[in-house]
Structure formats: structure tokens, C-alpha cells
């Protein structure tokens, strides 16, 4: 739900402020790739209505966000591709594909794609965090959006702890990816929490 909330928060921000200054479209592109790699089973496997519905929502909303930021005025007029410049193609996609192949539980396309999507998701926030570091001042809604993006994976970790003790569920790849992903947020969370605590605007060093 936190992940869904982060997407809805971003949609609301774009619609309300008609600006995507401070928002990384490259991060959304990474998430679109994550979802396409991971949700291929939409075509051949049914787990539950909830599972299918959320997959469709995540894929469609992420592509809609990219469309808004890249091609739909007035939002796209505020998008600066030179500022949002993290070269994720070689820095993130390459390693995720290699790691996905090496660490896949079995060498089948769905499993390799699933594993690569876990590694890619764990670092997909980097373009967004790097863009914020360049801008330093973080607008309120953006701060909330990034905070929910960091929080959702932390709640997966809590669920994984529960599932490990309740049903012996083991998911090494997901666990490692989740720890890396949450770890990348820790310093942002610190500055976010401080700005909330002291009621000041969020400014990154």
C-alpha cells in the first residue's frame, strides 16, 4: 500500500503543481523495467485478484508517469533531462542483468528476469536521490514521495521476518535486494526525519 501511495502521491503532485522539478523520470523508467521483467507472469499465471490487479496498476501508473513527465505539457515542459542525468543504462541495467543471470535460482527466462528485477529495483532509487542531492532543497510533496518509496521496501522486510518465522519462507535474493534498497535510503530518511522533527524544509547536504 505504501508503494501504491507513493505512486498516487507523485501523480497528485504532478497534477497539482503541474511541475516535475525535482522528480527523476529515469527512476520511473527503471521501475517500469522492473515491473515488465517481474510481471510477465500476468500472461501465464494467476495468483489472486489482488496480485493481478496491483501488477496492472503498477505497470500502467508507472508508464503514465513517464508519459506525463516526458511528453505531456505542462508537466513535460518542466522536465530537465540534463539534470536528471544518471546513466542507469550501463550503471544499473548492465549489472542487474549480469547479477540476475548469475544469482537466479534456476536458469529459466522467468526466473532470470525475476532475479534481475529484484537487483534493479534495489538500486532504482539512485537517479532520484542523486537528482535531489544536486537540487539540495527538496519540495514537501517530493520529500513525502521519496520517503514512501523508501518505506515500502522496509515493510516488505518486516513481512519477510514474519513469513520466515510463521511459514519458514526463505527468499535470499529478495532479502538481500531489500536490504540494499532500504540501506540506500537511510541517509535520506535521516535528513527527512530531522526536517520533520524541527519543522524545517528538507535540505540535503
Amino acid at each position: 500500500m505504501l508503494h501504491l501511495m507513493s505512486i498516487l502521491l507523485l501523480l497528485w503532485k504532478l497534477k497539482k503543481s503541474k511541475s516535475c522539478v525535482g522528480i527523476s523520470c529515469r527512476m520511473q523508467e527503471c521501475y517500469a523495467i522492473v515491473f515488465c521483467l517481474r510481471y510477465l507472469d500476468l500472461f501465464y499465471q494467476f495468483i489472486s485478484v489482488y496480485n493481478t490487479a496491483m501488477k496492472v496498476v503498477f505497470i500502467s501508473s508507472t508508464f503514465y508517469l513517464i508519459f506525463l513527465m516526458r511528453f505531456q505539457p505542462p508537466v513535460s515542459a518542466t522536465y530537465d533531462r540534463t539534470a536528471d542525468s544518471f546513466p542507469y543504462e550501463q550503471y544499473l541495467l548492465g549489472p542487474a542483468a549480469v547479477l540476475g543471470f548469475i544469482s537466479a535460482e534456476e536458469w529459466s527466462i522467468p526466473e532470470i528476469f525475476w532475479t534481475a528485477s529484484i537487483w534493479l529495483e534495489s538500486v532504482s532509487i539512485l537517479p532520484q536521490l542523486i537528482l535531489l542531492q544536486q537540487l539540495r532543497e527538496v519540495e514537501n510533496l517530493t520529500a513525502e514521495f521519496v520517503a514512501t518509496m523508501g518505506a515500502y521496501r522496509f515493510f516488505y522486510i518486516l513481512n519477510w521476518i514474519y513469513r520466515y518465522f510463521a511459514e519458514g519462507y526463505v527468499n535470499w535474493i529478495g532479502w538481500l535486494g531489500g536490504i540494499v534498497q532500504t540501506g540506500l535510503y537511510v541517509d535520506f530518511f535521516y535528513y527527512y526525519a530531522m526536517s520533520k522533527w524541527y519543522g524545517q524544509k528538507l535540505v540535503l547536504p
Partner: peptide, 10 residues
């Protein structure tokens, strides 16, 4: 886990 890894999470 049975056969191919069953991924029931989003």
C-alpha cells in the same frame, strides 16, 4: 519449494 520458484509477491 515445489519446482520453479513460486513468486507470490509483488
Amino acid at each position: 519449494d515445489e519446482g520453479g520458484a513460486e513468486h507470490d509477491e509483488l
